[in-house]
């Protein structure tokens, strides 16, 4: 029984750690705040959930498992709120996203580039050729 529980733990913790590593690699590798939010979401949702569910098998039907469940539930509620607040803050502070067509029109500032969807990109001239955000 203990061996079975250990195997179940490994079955959940190892994919969780793989997802954590992918998320951490994405935090280094990706090039934009909004792309990095994608990588951070990997850590916050499936990475944390898989590791905690794996630990639940070690905890058994005790208060420990309930606390692990509380951690999962709380992070699943707060992580989208943080990402949303941070994305809106970055848009308001004129960080132009690389994937411009994903930005809602009312949040785009004057002069920001907008992908029209048919292959040509209108540029208001505020950003440089590389499209790098001008603020530091």
């Amino acid at each position: 029984m203990t061996v079975l529980l250990d195997i179940l733990t490994a079955l959940f913790v190892i994919p969780g750690c793989v997802l954590l590593l992918i998320g951490g690699y994405g935090m280094i590798r990706l090039t934009d705040v909004f792309e990095r939010m994608h990588a951070a979401g990997l850590i916050d949702t499936l990475g944390l959930t898989l590791v905690m569910v794996g630990l639940m098998f070690q905890g058994g039907f005790t208060l420990i498992t309930f606390k692990l469940f509380l951690v999962i539930a709380f992070v699943l509620f707060t992580s989208p709120v943080v990402t949303h607040a941070l994305a809106r803050a970055a848009l308001v502070a004129n960080v132009v996203p690389k994937a411009r067509r994903l930005a809602p029109d009312e949040l785009m500032q004057d002069g920001a580039t907008i992908d029209t969807g048919n292959g040509e990109i209108t540029d208001g001239g505020q950003t440089g050729p590389g499209g790098a955000p001008s603020n530091s």
Binding site: L20, G23, M27, V33, R36, M37, A40, I43, D44, L48, V71, V75, S79, V82, L86, A89, A90, A93, V95, P133, N135, S136
Partner: peptide
């Protein structure tokens, strides 16, 4: 940008948990 740092610190806190 400062938002990169905030995002990284938030992810660091989750990893600490």
């Amino acid at each position: 940008t400062v938002f990169d740092r905030i995002l990284a610190v938030n992810a660091f806190g989750t990893l600490t948990v």
